[in-house]
Design a protein around this nucleic acid. Structure first.
Length: 466
RNA sequence: GGCGGGUUUGCCAAGUGGGAAGGCGGAAGUCUGCAAAACUUCUAUGAGUCGGUUCGAUUCCGACACCCGCCUCCA
Protein backbone atom coordinates (compact mmCIF):
# COMPACT_ATOMS: atom_id res chain seq x y z
CA UNK A 1 0.00 0.00 0.00
CA UNK A 2 1.26 3.43 -0.89
CA UNK A 3 1.64 6.07 1.80
CA UNK A 4 -1.69 7.77 2.33
CA UNK A 5 -2.80 10.74 4.40
CA UNK A 6 -6.23 12.00 5.27
CA UNK A 7 -6.36 15.45 3.72
CA UNK A 8 -8.66 17.89 5.50
CA UNK A 9 -9.04 19.75 2.21
CA UNK A 10 -10.77 16.82 0.51
CA UNK A 11 -11.88 14.95 3.62
CA UNK A 12 -10.49 11.75 2.21
CA UNK A 13 -7.36 9.64 2.23
CA UNK A 14 -5.04 10.43 -0.65
CA UNK A 15 -1.81 8.90 -1.89
CA UNK A 16 1.10 11.04 -0.80
CA UNK A 17 2.92 12.42 -3.83
CA UNK A 18 5.38 15.22 -3.06
CA UNK A 19 5.41 18.37 -5.21
CA UNK A 20 9.12 17.78 -5.86
CA UNK A 21 9.33 16.33 -9.39
CA UNK A 22 12.04 13.97 -8.16
CA UNK A 23 9.69 12.80 -5.40
CA UNK A 24 12.39 13.28 -2.81
CA UNK A 25 12.04 16.62 -1.04
CA UNK A 26 9.12 17.34 1.28
CA UNK A 27 8.23 20.71 2.76
CA UNK A 28 6.52 20.43 6.14
CA UNK A 29 5.10 23.33 8.12
CA UNK A 30 3.67 22.80 11.58
CA UNK A 31 1.98 25.52 13.60
CA UNK A 32 4.10 26.18 16.65
CA UNK A 33 3.28 27.37 20.14
CA UNK A 34 2.12 30.74 21.37
CA UNK A 35 4.71 31.40 24.02
CA UNK A 36 2.79 33.02 26.87
CA UNK A 37 2.60 29.97 29.14
CA UNK A 38 3.83 26.42 29.58
CA UNK A 39 2.59 23.97 26.98
CA UNK A 40 -0.07 21.55 28.23
CA UNK A 41 -0.36 17.93 27.17
CA UNK A 42 -3.03 18.82 24.64
CA UNK A 43 -0.57 21.12 22.90
CA UNK A 44 2.07 18.46 23.18
CA UNK A 45 -0.09 15.85 21.51
CA UNK A 46 -0.07 17.96 18.36
CA UNK A 47 3.71 18.25 18.41
CA UNK A 48 3.96 14.54 19.10
CA UNK A 49 1.85 13.68 16.09
CA UNK A 50 3.93 16.00 13.92
CA UNK A 51 7.08 14.37 15.22
CA UNK A 52 5.77 10.95 14.24
CA UNK A 53 4.83 12.27 10.82
CA UNK A 54 8.24 13.80 10.21
CA UNK A 55 10.11 10.76 11.50
CA UNK A 56 8.06 8.46 9.33
CA UNK A 57 8.59 10.57 6.22
CA UNK A 58 12.32 10.48 6.90
CA UNK A 59 12.18 6.74 7.52
CA UNK A 60 10.56 6.43 4.09
CA UNK A 61 13.56 8.23 2.62
CA UNK A 62 12.13 11.69 2.06
CA UNK A 63 14.35 14.72 2.58
CA UNK A 64 12.09 16.71 4.87
CA UNK A 65 12.46 20.41 5.54
CA UNK A 66 10.50 21.06 8.69
CA UNK A 67 9.51 24.61 9.63
CA UNK A 68 7.75 25.49 12.86
CA UNK A 69 6.95 29.02 13.91
CA UNK A 70 7.05 30.57 17.34
CA UNK A 71 4.13 32.93 17.88
CA UNK A 72 5.65 35.57 20.10
CA UNK A 73 3.18 38.39 19.64
CA UNK A 74 -0.50 37.83 20.33
CA UNK A 75 -3.32 39.06 22.57
CA UNK A 76 -2.48 36.90 25.57
CA UNK A 77 1.20 37.79 25.40
CA UNK A 78 0.32 41.47 25.28
CA UNK A 79 -1.95 40.99 28.25
CA UNK A 80 0.93 39.39 30.14
CA UNK A 81 3.18 42.31 29.23
CA UNK A 82 0.55 44.70 30.54
CA UNK A 83 -0.03 42.75 33.72
CA UNK A 84 3.58 42.03 34.62
CA UNK A 85 5.28 45.09 33.20
CA UNK A 86 7.99 42.83 31.81
CA UNK A 87 9.34 43.34 28.30
CA UNK A 88 7.66 41.11 25.73
CA UNK A 89 10.92 39.47 24.79
CA UNK A 90 11.65 38.45 28.36
CA UNK A 91 8.33 36.63 28.60
CA UNK A 92 8.53 34.97 25.20
CA UNK A 93 12.18 33.97 25.57
CA UNK A 94 11.39 32.24 28.82
CA UNK A 95 8.45 30.23 27.51
CA UNK A 96 10.20 29.47 24.25
CA UNK A 97 13.10 27.92 26.16
CA UNK A 98 10.65 25.97 28.32
CA UNK A 99 8.89 24.76 25.21
CA UNK A 100 12.08 23.42 23.70
CA UNK A 101 12.85 21.73 26.96
CA UNK A 102 9.48 19.98 26.82
CA UNK A 103 10.18 18.82 23.28
CA UNK A 104 13.54 17.43 24.35
CA UNK A 105 11.94 15.60 27.29
CA UNK A 106 9.52 13.93 24.91
CA UNK A 107 12.24 13.19 22.36
CA UNK A 108 10.45 15.31 19.79
CA UNK A 109 12.81 16.39 17.03
CA UNK A 110 13.23 20.09 16.68
CA UNK A 111 12.18 21.65 13.38
CA UNK A 112 15.03 22.54 11.05
CA UNK A 113 13.87 26.13 10.90
CA UNK A 114 12.11 27.88 13.78
CA UNK A 115 11.28 31.48 12.87
CA UNK A 116 9.76 33.92 15.34
CA UNK A 117 6.82 36.07 14.35
CA UNK A 118 8.41 39.24 15.68
CA UNK A 119 11.46 38.68 13.50
CA UNK A 120 9.36 38.25 10.37
CA UNK A 121 7.38 41.48 10.48
CA UNK A 122 8.94 43.09 7.38
CA UNK A 123 7.88 40.04 5.37
CA UNK A 124 4.37 40.30 6.75
CA UNK A 125 4.15 43.98 5.84
CA UNK A 126 5.33 43.17 2.32
CA UNK A 127 2.68 40.47 1.92
CA UNK A 128 -0.05 42.76 3.24
CA UNK A 129 1.03 45.45 0.77
CA UNK A 130 0.69 42.93 -2.04
CA UNK A 131 -2.78 42.02 -0.87
CA UNK A 132 -3.82 45.67 -0.74
CA UNK A 133 -2.39 46.24 -4.23
CA UNK A 134 -4.39 43.30 -5.54
CA UNK A 135 -7.50 44.60 -3.76
CA UNK A 136 -7.81 41.58 -1.52
CA UNK A 137 -7.29 43.79 1.51
CA UNK A 138 -8.31 47.24 2.67
CA UNK A 139 -7.33 49.68 5.38
CA UNK A 140 -10.05 50.31 7.94
CA UNK A 141 -10.87 53.63 9.59
CA UNK A 142 -8.82 52.68 12.63
CA UNK A 143 -5.63 52.00 10.65
CA UNK A 144 -6.03 48.23 10.78
CA UNK A 145 -5.81 46.23 7.59
CA UNK A 146 -8.40 43.57 6.82
CA UNK A 147 -8.62 40.77 4.32
CA UNK A 148 -11.76 40.92 2.24
CA UNK A 149 -13.43 37.52 2.26
CA UNK A 150 -15.62 38.29 -0.71
CA UNK A 151 -12.52 38.89 -2.85
CA UNK A 152 -11.61 35.23 -2.44
CA UNK A 153 -14.48 33.10 -3.75
CA UNK A 154 -13.24 29.74 -2.47
CA UNK A 155 -13.06 30.99 1.11
CA UNK A 156 -14.47 28.29 3.39
CA UNK A 157 -13.13 25.36 1.38
CA UNK A 158 -10.91 23.95 4.13
CA UNK A 159 -13.44 24.29 6.92
CA UNK A 160 -16.23 23.29 4.53
CA UNK A 161 -18.20 26.27 5.60
CA UNK A 162 -20.81 27.95 3.51
CA UNK A 163 -20.03 31.60 4.11
CA UNK A 164 -23.32 32.75 2.59
CA UNK A 165 -25.40 31.04 5.22
CA UNK A 166 -23.00 31.17 8.11
CA UNK A 167 -24.51 32.15 11.41
CA UNK A 168 -21.91 33.99 13.45
CA UNK A 169 -20.87 32.17 16.58
CA UNK A 170 -21.25 33.63 20.02
CA UNK A 171 -17.69 34.86 20.08
CA UNK A 172 -18.03 37.23 17.15
CA UNK A 173 -18.11 40.78 18.31
CA UNK A 174 -19.70 42.79 15.53
CA UNK A 175 -18.81 46.19 16.84
CA UNK A 176 -15.20 45.61 17.73
CA UNK A 177 -13.53 46.30 14.42
CA UNK A 178 -13.87 48.69 11.56
CA UNK A 179 -14.52 45.88 9.12
CA UNK A 180 -16.57 45.94 5.97
CA UNK A 181 -17.86 42.47 6.62
CA UNK A 182 -18.10 40.53 9.86
CA UNK A 183 -16.19 37.61 8.41
CA UNK A 184 -13.23 39.69 7.26
CA UNK A 185 -10.16 39.11 9.37
CA UNK A 186 -7.30 41.33 10.45
CA UNK A 187 -3.97 41.25 8.65
CA UNK A 188 -2.61 44.18 10.62
CA UNK A 189 -4.01 45.48 13.89
CA UNK A 190 -3.63 49.15 14.64
CA UNK A 191 -2.02 50.00 17.96
CA UNK A 192 -4.39 50.69 20.83
CA UNK A 193 -3.47 52.01 24.23
CA UNK A 194 -3.77 48.67 25.99
CA UNK A 195 -1.04 47.33 23.69
CA UNK A 196 1.41 49.49 25.63
CA UNK A 197 4.96 49.19 24.30
CA UNK A 198 4.10 46.37 21.90
CA UNK A 199 4.05 47.95 18.45
CA UNK A 200 5.85 48.09 15.12
CA UNK A 201 5.89 50.76 12.45
CA UNK A 202 4.06 50.08 9.23
CA UNK A 203 2.79 52.00 6.20
CA UNK A 204 -0.56 52.13 8.04
CA UNK A 205 0.82 53.45 11.27
CA UNK A 206 1.98 51.68 14.42
CA UNK A 207 0.49 48.32 15.21
CA UNK A 208 1.11 44.63 15.13
CA UNK A 209 0.44 41.77 12.75
CA UNK A 210 -2.73 39.71 12.81
CA UNK A 211 -2.28 36.12 13.82
CA UNK A 212 -2.79 34.31 10.54
CA UNK A 213 -0.40 36.32 8.40
CA UNK A 214 2.69 35.12 10.24
CA UNK A 215 2.22 31.51 9.21
CA UNK A 216 1.71 32.43 5.56
CA UNK A 217 4.87 34.47 5.53
CA UNK A 218 7.07 32.13 7.52
CA UNK A 219 6.00 29.02 5.64
CA UNK A 220 6.37 30.50 2.17
CA UNK A 221 9.68 32.18 3.03
CA UNK A 222 11.27 28.84 3.78
CA UNK A 223 9.24 26.35 1.76
CA UNK A 224 8.13 28.33 -1.27
CA UNK A 225 4.73 29.58 -2.42
CA UNK A 226 3.50 26.00 -2.69
CA UNK A 227 4.57 23.24 -0.33
CA UNK A 228 3.55 19.74 0.66
CA UNK A 229 2.20 19.41 4.17
CA UNK A 230 0.76 21.77 6.75
CA UNK A 231 -0.26 20.48 10.18
CA UNK A 232 -1.98 21.67 13.29
CA UNK A 233 -4.68 20.84 15.81
CA UNK A 234 -8.18 20.42 14.47
CA UNK A 235 -9.25 23.67 16.07
CA UNK A 236 -6.96 25.51 13.68
CA UNK A 237 -8.83 24.37 10.59
CA UNK A 238 -11.09 27.36 10.84
CA UNK A 239 -10.33 30.16 10.84
CA UNK A 240 -6.55 30.02 11.12
CA UNK A 241 -5.69 27.71 8.25
CA UNK A 242 -8.60 28.88 6.14
CA UNK A 243 -7.24 32.39 6.44
CA UNK A 244 -3.73 31.28 5.62
CA UNK A 245 -4.98 29.78 2.39
CA UNK A 246 -6.89 32.92 1.49
CA UNK A 247 -3.97 35.28 2.18
CA UNK A 248 -1.34 33.14 0.55
CA UNK A 249 -3.20 32.16 -2.58
CA UNK A 250 -4.66 35.64 -3.07
CA UNK A 251 -1.12 37.05 -2.96
CA UNK A 252 0.73 34.46 -5.04
CA UNK A 253 -1.98 33.08 -7.29
CA UNK A 254 -0.57 29.63 -6.61
CA UNK A 255 -1.97 26.73 -4.61
CA UNK A 256 -0.65 27.07 -1.06
CA UNK A 257 -0.57 23.62 0.53
CA UNK A 258 -1.16 20.19 -0.98
CA UNK A 259 -1.95 18.16 2.15
CA UNK A 260 -3.56 19.53 5.30
CA UNK A 261 -3.27 17.20 8.31
CA UNK A 262 -5.03 17.93 11.58
CA UNK A 263 -4.89 16.07 14.86
CA UNK A 264 -7.83 15.56 17.21
CA UNK A 265 -7.80 16.95 20.72
CA UNK A 266 -7.46 14.81 23.79
CA UNK A 267 -9.57 14.18 26.84
CA UNK A 268 -8.10 13.76 30.30
CA UNK A 269 -9.74 11.06 32.42
CA UNK A 270 -12.61 11.07 29.94
CA UNK A 271 -13.30 14.76 30.27
CA UNK A 272 -12.40 17.82 28.34
CA UNK A 273 -9.22 19.23 29.81
CA UNK A 274 -9.77 22.44 31.70
CA UNK A 275 -8.26 24.23 34.63
CA UNK A 276 -11.58 24.36 36.47
CA UNK A 277 -12.09 20.58 36.11
CA UNK A 278 -8.69 20.03 37.75
CA UNK A 279 -7.48 17.84 34.90
CA UNK A 280 -5.20 20.34 33.24
CA UNK A 281 -1.64 19.09 32.98
CA UNK A 282 1.60 20.53 31.79
CA UNK A 283 4.57 18.31 31.20
CA UNK A 284 6.23 19.55 34.38
CA UNK A 285 3.15 18.51 36.39
CA UNK A 286 3.47 14.95 35.11
CA UNK A 287 7.22 14.80 35.60
CA UNK A 288 6.73 16.00 39.17
CA UNK A 289 4.43 13.03 39.70
CA UNK A 290 7.19 10.65 38.70
CA UNK A 291 6.25 9.97 35.09
CA UNK A 292 8.95 10.07 32.49
CA UNK A 293 8.96 11.83 29.15
CA UNK A 294 9.28 8.46 27.52
CA UNK A 295 6.12 7.14 29.17
CA UNK A 296 4.21 10.25 28.22
CA UNK A 297 5.53 9.95 24.68
CA UNK A 298 4.30 6.37 24.47
CA UNK A 299 0.82 7.26 25.67
CA UNK A 300 0.47 10.32 23.43
CA UNK A 301 1.69 8.34 20.46
CA UNK A 302 -0.29 5.18 20.97
CA UNK A 303 -3.62 6.31 19.56
CA UNK A 304 -4.36 7.38 16.00
CA UNK A 305 -3.83 11.11 15.59
CA UNK A 306 -7.29 11.80 14.18
CA UNK A 307 -9.04 10.12 17.09
CA UNK A 308 -9.69 11.75 20.37
CA UNK A 309 -7.22 10.28 22.85
CA UNK A 310 -8.20 9.67 26.44
CA UNK A 311 -5.18 10.61 28.52
CA UNK A 312 -5.39 8.92 31.91
CA UNK A 313 -3.11 8.02 34.80
CA UNK A 314 -4.06 4.38 34.21
CA UNK A 315 -2.93 4.90 30.64
CA UNK A 316 0.42 6.19 31.86
CA UNK A 317 0.79 3.15 34.10
CA UNK A 318 -0.02 0.99 31.09
CA UNK A 319 2.58 2.81 29.05
CA UNK A 320 5.13 2.17 31.78
CA UNK A 321 4.39 -1.57 31.79
CA UNK A 322 4.44 -1.81 28.01
CA UNK A 323 7.80 -0.02 27.80
CA UNK A 324 9.25 -2.26 30.49
CA UNK A 325 8.21 -5.26 28.50
CA UNK A 326 9.85 -3.86 25.36
CA UNK A 327 13.01 -3.02 27.30
CA UNK A 328 13.15 -6.46 28.84
CA UNK A 329 12.86 -7.99 25.41
CA UNK A 330 15.63 -5.83 23.98
CA UNK A 331 17.94 -6.40 26.95
CA UNK A 332 17.58 -10.13 26.49
CA UNK A 333 18.52 -9.77 22.86
CA UNK A 334 21.51 -7.60 23.76
CA UNK A 335 22.72 -10.24 26.18
CA UNK A 336 22.75 -12.91 23.51
CA UNK A 337 23.45 -10.95 20.31
CA UNK A 338 26.56 -11.76 18.30
CA UNK A 339 27.58 -10.84 14.77
CA UNK A 340 26.75 -13.51 12.18
CA UNK A 341 29.35 -16.26 11.98
CA UNK A 342 29.34 -16.48 8.22
CA UNK A 343 28.50 -14.32 5.21
CA UNK A 344 25.74 -16.68 4.19
CA UNK A 345 23.71 -15.57 7.18
CA UNK A 346 20.12 -14.72 6.32
CA UNK A 347 18.33 -12.19 8.43
CA UNK A 348 15.22 -13.59 10.12
CA UNK A 349 11.78 -12.60 9.05
CA UNK A 350 11.15 -9.24 10.65
CA UNK A 351 8.10 -7.15 11.26
CA UNK A 352 9.32 -4.09 9.39
CA UNK A 353 7.22 -4.68 6.29
CA UNK A 354 4.02 -5.10 8.26
CA UNK A 355 4.91 -2.11 10.38
CA UNK A 356 5.29 0.00 7.25
CA UNK A 357 2.04 -1.39 5.89
CA UNK A 358 0.21 -0.14 8.95
CA UNK A 359 1.95 3.22 9.07
CA UNK A 360 1.36 3.85 5.38
CA UNK A 361 -2.34 3.89 6.16
CA UNK A 362 -2.48 7.45 7.47
CA UNK A 363 -0.01 6.68 10.28
CA UNK A 364 -2.02 3.89 11.87
CA UNK A 365 0.21 3.62 14.89
CA UNK A 366 -2.13 1.34 16.84
CA UNK A 367 -1.94 -1.29 14.12
CA UNK A 368 1.81 -0.74 13.83
CA UNK A 369 2.34 -1.26 17.56
CA UNK A 370 0.22 -4.39 17.48
CA UNK A 371 2.52 -5.74 14.78
CA UNK A 372 5.45 -4.93 17.03
CA UNK A 373 4.00 -6.72 20.05
CA UNK A 374 3.07 -9.76 17.96
CA UNK A 375 6.69 -9.88 16.89
CA UNK A 376 7.95 -9.61 20.45
CA UNK A 377 5.77 -12.52 21.47
CA UNK A 378 6.95 -14.70 18.63
CA UNK A 379 10.62 -14.03 19.37
CA UNK A 380 10.11 -14.55 23.09
CA UNK A 381 8.79 -17.99 22.26
CA UNK A 382 11.90 -18.75 20.27
CA UNK A 383 14.07 -17.59 23.16
CA UNK A 384 12.18 -19.77 25.62
CA UNK A 385 12.58 -22.75 23.30
CA UNK A 386 16.25 -21.92 22.88
CA UNK A 387 15.75 -21.54 19.14
CA UNK A 388 17.03 -18.00 18.66
CA UNK A 389 20.52 -17.77 17.20
CA UNK A 390 22.86 -15.02 18.47
CA UNK A 391 23.17 -13.74 14.91
CA UNK A 392 19.38 -13.48 14.67
CA UNK A 393 19.33 -11.50 17.88
CA UNK A 394 21.90 -9.15 16.36
CA UNK A 395 19.81 -8.73 13.19
CA UNK A 396 16.64 -8.02 15.17
CA UNK A 397 18.41 -5.33 17.17
CA UNK A 398 19.74 -3.77 13.97
CA UNK A 399 16.25 -3.52 12.54
CA UNK A 400 14.88 -2.33 15.84
CA UNK A 401 17.22 0.63 15.65
CA UNK A 402 15.61 1.55 12.33
CA UNK A 403 12.06 1.19 13.62
CA UNK A 404 12.95 3.22 16.69
CA UNK A 405 13.91 6.11 14.46
CA UNK A 406 10.17 6.34 13.82
CA UNK A 407 8.89 5.60 17.32
CA UNK A 408 11.58 7.44 19.23
CA UNK A 409 11.17 5.35 22.38
CA UNK A 410 14.91 4.75 22.59
CA UNK A 411 16.64 1.50 23.41
CA UNK A 412 17.54 0.53 26.96
CA UNK A 413 21.21 0.59 27.80
CA UNK A 414 22.83 -2.26 29.62
CA UNK A 415 23.93 -0.86 32.93
CA UNK A 416 27.51 -1.51 33.94
CA UNK A 417 27.61 -3.51 37.13
CA UNK A 418 30.20 -2.06 39.57
CA UNK A 419 32.85 -4.42 40.94
CA UNK A 420 31.54 -4.36 44.52
CA UNK A 421 28.06 -5.26 43.34
CA UNK A 422 29.47 -8.01 41.18
CA UNK A 423 31.35 -9.37 44.17
CA UNK A 424 28.11 -9.49 46.19
CA UNK A 425 26.42 -11.32 43.37
CA UNK A 426 29.17 -13.92 43.39
CA UNK A 427 28.95 -14.29 47.17
CA UNK A 428 25.21 -14.81 47.06
CA UNK A 429 25.56 -17.35 44.29
CA UNK A 430 28.13 -19.25 46.37
CA UNK A 431 25.80 -19.15 49.39
CA UNK A 432 22.95 -20.48 47.29
CA UNK A 433 25.04 -23.29 45.96
CA UNK A 434 25.99 -24.33 49.47
CA UNK A 435 22.25 -24.13 50.34
CA UNK A 436 22.87 -21.30 52.80
CA UNK A 437 19.66 -19.55 51.75
CA UNK A 438 19.53 -17.37 54.84
CA UNK A 439 22.87 -15.84 53.91
CA UNK A 440 21.80 -15.57 50.26
CA UNK A 441 18.68 -13.63 51.23
CA UNK A 442 20.72 -11.31 53.42
CA UNK A 443 22.96 -10.48 50.52
CA UNK A 444 19.94 -9.90 48.33
CA UNK A 445 18.64 -7.37 50.85
CA UNK A 446 22.05 -5.75 50.86
CA UNK A 447 21.98 -5.45 47.09
CA UNK A 448 18.52 -3.91 47.24
CA UNK A 449 19.81 -1.22 49.53
CA UNK A 450 22.57 -0.54 47.01
CA UNK A 451 19.97 -0.04 44.31
CA UNK A 452 20.26 -3.39 42.57
CA UNK A 453 17.85 -6.20 42.11
CA UNK A 454 18.48 -9.61 40.71
CA UNK A 455 16.70 -12.22 38.73
CA UNK A 456 17.67 -15.86 38.80
CA UNK A 457 17.54 -17.24 35.30
CA UNK A 458 18.60 -20.63 33.95
CA UNK A 459 21.73 -18.87 32.70
CA UNK A 460 22.51 -17.58 36.20
CA UNK A 461 21.56 -14.47 38.13
CA UNK A 462 21.02 -11.26 36.24
CA UNK A 463 21.67 -7.84 37.70
CA UNK A 464 19.14 -5.08 37.23
CA UNK A 465 19.10 -1.54 38.43
CA UNK A 466 16.13 -0.61 40.56
C1' G B 1 -29.19 26.77 14.71
C1' G B 2 -25.24 24.97 10.85
C1' C B 3 -21.14 21.61 9.89
C1' G B 4 -17.98 17.55 11.44
C1' G B 5 -15.95 13.37 14.53
C1' G B 6 -17.19 9.62 17.98
C1' U B 7 -19.79 5.52 21.28
C1' U B 8 -15.88 -1.73 20.61
C1' U B 9 -14.06 -6.22 26.80
C1' G B 10 -12.56 -3.93 33.80
C1' C B 11 -9.37 0.39 31.39
C1' C B 12 -6.85 2.16 26.75
C1' A B 13 -7.40 1.15 21.61
C1' A B 14 -7.34 -0.98 15.93
C1' G B 15 -9.29 -3.38 11.71
C1' U B 16 -13.39 -5.47 9.23
C1' G B 17 -20.20 -7.06 4.82
C1' G B 18 -19.04 -13.64 6.87
C1' G B 19 -13.89 -16.35 12.43
C1' A B 20 -13.70 -8.91 16.97
C1' A B 21 -5.89 -6.71 16.43
C1' G B 22 -2.76 -5.10 20.19
C1' G B 23 -1.48 -2.93 25.10
C1' C B 24 -2.66 -2.55 30.38
C1' G B 25 -5.18 -5.11 34.17
C1' G B 26 -6.94 -10.02 35.85
C1' A B 27 -6.56 -15.64 36.14
C1' A B 28 -3.84 -20.16 35.62
C1' G B 29 0.76 -22.37 34.52
C1' U B 30 6.37 -22.80 33.56
C1' C B 31 10.89 -21.47 35.95
C1' U B 32 12.78 -20.79 41.23
C1' G B 33 15.41 -22.96 47.78
C1' C B 34 12.02 -18.90 48.32
C1' A B 35 10.97 -14.65 45.83
C1' A B 36 11.02 -11.33 42.05
C1' A B 37 11.24 -10.81 37.12
C1' A B 38 10.45 -12.99 32.72
C1' C B 39 7.87 -16.16 29.63
C1' U B 40 3.49 -19.15 28.03
C1' U B 41 -1.76 -19.82 27.84
C1' C B 42 -6.57 -17.95 28.86
C1' U B 43 -9.53 -13.49 29.39
C1' A B 44 -15.98 -9.43 24.37
C1' U B 45 -21.40 -15.65 21.16
C1' G B 46 -20.76 -9.68 21.45
C1' A B 47 -20.02 -3.90 19.43
C1' G B 48 -24.70 3.05 22.85
C1' U B 49 -30.36 2.08 21.84
C1' C B 50 -34.13 0.95 18.24
C1' G B 51 -35.38 -0.01 13.26
C1' G B 52 -34.05 -1.05 7.94
C1' U B 53 -31.13 -3.24 3.67
C1' U B 54 -28.77 -8.20 3.17
C1' C B 55 -28.39 -15.26 2.79
C1' G B 56 -25.41 -12.75 6.58
C1' A B 57 -24.40 -6.16 9.86
C1' U B 58 -19.93 -4.35 14.95
C1' U B 59 -19.03 -2.79 9.79
C1' C B 60 -23.93 -0.02 5.04
C1' C B 61 -28.65 3.18 5.67
C1' G B 62 -32.24 5.83 9.03
C1' A B 63 -33.87 7.54 13.69
C1' C B 64 -32.86 8.34 18.95
C1' A B 65 -29.54 8.97 23.25
C1' C B 66 -24.97 10.53 25.06
C1' C B 67 -19.79 12.57 24.41
C1' C B 68 -16.46 15.81 21.74
C1' G B 69 -14.88 19.58 18.14
C1' C B 70 -15.49 23.95 14.82
C1' C B 71 -18.80 28.21 13.52
C1' U B 72 -13.21 34.94 13.84
C1' C B 73 -7.15 34.77 16.75
C1' C B 74 -7.79 27.73 21.74
C1' A B 75 -3.31 21.83 19.82
Amino acid sequence: MALQFFNTLTRSKEDFVPLDPAGKKVGLYTCGPTVYNFAHIGNLRAFMFEDLLRRYLEYKGYAVTHVMNITDVEDKIIRTVRETGKPLREITDFYTAEFFRDLATLNIQRAHIVPRATETIPGMIALIEQLIAKQHAYVGDDGSVYFSIKSFPTYGQLGHLDMENLQPGARVQHDEYAKESVADFALWKAWVETDGPVKWDSPWGPGRPGWHIECSVMSMAHLGASFDIHCGGEDLVFPHHEDEIAQSEAATGKPFVKYWLHNAHLLVEGKKMSKSAGNFYTLRDLLANGWTGREIRYLLLSAHYREQLNFTMDGLAGARSALQRIDEFLLKLMDMAKPPASDSFEAPHMFGAQFVGAMNDDLNISAALSVMFDFIRSINKKIVDNLLQPSEARAILDEWHEIDKVLGFGLPSKSEVPADVQALFAKRQAARQSKDFKRADEIRAQLTSLGWTLEDTPQGPRAKRL
